[in-house]
């Protein structure tokens, strides 16, 4: 079970709680075991396990929420998306931005990720955390390469905006501190 840690943290981000994450990982392994005949020896076992996890997660989302798709977002051309890229000649607030990141905590990053809408969250996790290639993610989620790229682009933009927001907002000492 050398891939269990990656599967578990992906499941954690997707389900947002440890008990559901454990269920999802367990379901993934049980499905993999049941359908092991479908695995082609020599192909990428890790990618196959993540594909099973993604499918299981997506079918859960469809049951519990209305986040059923992102067609309208996927329909946006890549050119439209990239048109939002910051003008490099503009004022970047360089040092301010980098300094702001210094105050970001792991818990903020995890919260920001978990707040991303589902299709973006999954793509960003698979790429940024687990390091899968665009092609692997496209195969895993059965979506075109361009859709992977647009989901990553959109997801990362939302993520950065949230991180920026957290970095600018003052620490809330009362939050979560019961005694």
């Amino acid at each position: 079970m050398e891939h269990i840690d990656g599967l578990y943290r992906t499941a954690l981000r997707l389900t947002r709680n440890p008990a559901d994450a454990e269920d999802l990982v367990q379901e993934t392994y049980l499905r993999a075991f049941r359908f092991r005949d479908r695995f082609q020896p020599g192909s990428n076992l890790r990618a196959w396990l993540f594909k099973i996890l993604s499918n299981a997660a997506i079918s859960r989302f469809r049951h519990v929420s209305h986040e059923t798709g992102d067609t309208s977002l996927d329909d946006m051309g890549e050119f439209d998306l990239y048109a939002h890229v910051v003008d490099p000649g503009g004022s970047l607030g360089e040092s301010a931005e980098n300094t702001a990141l210094n105050s970001i905590l792991d818990v903020d990053v995890r919260r920001a990720l978990e707040e991303l809408p589902e299709p973006f969250r999954l793509a960003v996790i698979l790429s940024d955390v687990e390091g899968f290639s665009y092609k692997e993610i496209a195969d895993m989620l059965d979506i075109p390469l361009g859709t992977v790229m647009s989901r990553l682009f959109r997801g990362r933009r939302i993520l950065r905006n949230k991180l920026d927001e957290y970095a600018r907002s003052p620490v809330q000492p009362s939050e979560g501190k019961g005694s």
């Binding site: 079970m1 269990i4 578990y8 954690l12 981000r13 990982v25 792991d106 990053v109 990720l113 940024d128």
Partner: peptide, 18 residues
Amino acid sequence: LVRHACSELAPASLRARI
């Protein structure tokens, strides 16, 4: 930052259960 924030390990009990 994202990679660092997401570095949890699966609980041993989960491995055992599977």
